[in-house]
Design a protein around this nucleic acid. Structure first.
Length: 456
DNA sequence: CTAGGGTTAG
């Protein structure tokens, strides 16, 4: 009896540290517990798995599975669900499916959450149809969807640009007596904000108020970010004040939103002010806040300060992620150190980052802007993966370098294959052709642009 | 213990 109670206490402590990404603390407490005769149970290991998957890597989480087996504890359905969720976060779909097989082999029947995680994974990988099929399977089978299932559906639909379907599903569920949770409202508000449908978002916000739920930090942050995106800075900052009054700025979310927004539009002084406020408020910095601040220093051209902060970050036990690397590479580019940027990119490859598209995009764009168009073309051609950003930037810079034939050729091939090109880049090609006397060519491109608009 | 908010490049 006493032993059971102690393990529950242990789990409460481990949970707190895991959620705060203090894994070494969590591990230390487990060791202390064992020394006092309080043994970790399946819940303890499940929490560790979730935390390692979230803050370190999927593999690190998976290693815990072996550790718990060695300790004589059998994994349960939550163990596998956490691992599936962990694989999901790392976009490892086949891994999620393998885990599902593995649990079946082990005689652990999947539950609602296994399917929830799988659905979530499919939505994240941009496969809404397959996610929907899992949902249908679930309804047809013995499993009853829970509120989280609906939240995952709504979120997935929104993230895959099916905002209308999400809204319709929400209304349908309400008709069937489904009582939305605060999370549900937050998901819908986020989706609507992202789709630029502010009026509907505000309407849902009003419904949230009428429902008896109080908006939380997540609701505020979402709305605030939406304000900034729509250049309503004053309103956004008012929301930040409201958050502060309610005591919701204990973490970096609100501050990072504000700082990043100001950095983006070049209002660095204000960004710095909010950075200082964040520090004064004693906000525990995590990887995202560090990234935000490093980005601020890079944009100010204070590379030294950026690298000092990077050191501090690593001393705190955080590892650079994709964002950190991209921010630094862009910082190096902006400072004119293309060679350093390329070296950093090589380093990224070496330490096993599978996707560094954003970093490549930074380099290509910066080379073009600096007038090194041939160099930019070289890097562009060496890229295995490209996106609309890459092409837009390249089209822009080719125009700038007066390489109009190449620019129009690239634009045309994008129009043909349905790659979205920034309007301003399209305009640059048409204007460029006109100014250099190729009016017929310009007309031709224009009509192709119009045709593409109709067919896509 | 598992879903929802914040960070990068035109």
């Amino acid at each position: 009896m006493f032993g059971k109670l102690s393990t529950r206490l242990l789990n409460i402590c481990v949970c707190t540290f895991c959620k705060a990404n203090r894994l070494e603390k969590a591990e230390a407490i487990i060791i202390d517990g064992i020394r006092l005769g309080v043994l970790p149970d399946v819940v303890t290991y499940n929490m560790l798995i979730d935390a390692y998957c979230q803050f370190v890597s999927f593999d690190a989480g998976y290693t815990i599975l072996n550790r718990m087996r060695e300790a004589g504890i059998s994994p349960d359905v939550v163990t596998y669900n956490s691992l599936i969720a962990g694989a999901t976060r790392n976009s490892l779909l086949s891994c999620s499916l393998d885990l599902l097989d593995e649990m079946l082999e082990m005689g652990i029947p999947p539950d609602v959450w296994s399917y929830n995680s799988l659905m979530h994974c499919l939505f994240q990988l941009g496969k809404p149809d397959e996610a929907n099929r899992v949902f249908q399977d679930m309804i047809c089978g013995d499993l009853t969807p829970c509120t989280a299932t609906f939240n995952i559906m709504l979120n997935g639909l929104c993230k895959n640009r099916y905002t209308d379907n999400a809204l319709r599903m929400f209304r349908g569920l309400q008709k069937h007596g489904f009582v939305p949770e605060l999370v549900t409202y937050n998901i819908l508000i986020k989706g609507l904000c992202k789709a630029g449908r502010l009026r509907t978002a505000r309407w849902i916000l009003k419904e949230l108020g009428d429902s008896g739920h109080a908006p939380n930090a997540i609701t505020y942050t979402t709305i605030m970010k939406c304000c900034f995106r729509n250049r309503k800075y004053k309103l956004g900052l008012e929301i930040l004040s409201a958050m502060k009054r309610k005591g919701y700025t204990f973490d970096g979310f609100g501050y990072c939103t504000v700082i990043a927004a100001f950095v983006k539009i070049g209002r660095l002084k204000e960004a710095t002010d909010y950075m200082e406020q964040m520090v004064t408020d004693g906000v525990q910095l995590d990887i995202v806040s560090y990234n935000t601040l490093i980005n601020l220093y890079c944009k100010e051209g204070k590379l030294e300060a950026a690298y000092l902060l990077l050191d501090e970050m690593e001393k705190q036990g955080f590892e650079c992620d994709k964002y950190t690397h991209t921010i630094l590479i862009d910082g190096l580019c902006k400072a004119g150190n293309i060679k350093g940027a390329r070296l950093h990119l090589e380093y990224m490859n070496k330490i096993g980052f599978d996707s560094n598209l954003e970093a490549y995009n930074c380099i290509v764009d910066r080379l073009g802007k600096d007038g090194k168009i041939d160099h930019a073309i070289n890097v562009f051609e060496s890229m295995e993966v490209k996106d609309s950003f890459t092409y837009s930037s390249m089209v822009h810079n080719l125009c700038k370098a007066k390489r109009l034939p190449s620019a129009s050729k690239l634009l045309l091939s994008c129009l043909k294959s349905g790659v979205r090109i920034l309007k301003s880049a399209q305009k640059a090609v048409v204007d460029g052709l006109r100014h250099s006397g190729c009016r017929r060519e310009a007309k031709k491109i224009q009509s192709k642009i119009r045709m593409a608009k109709i067919s896509h």
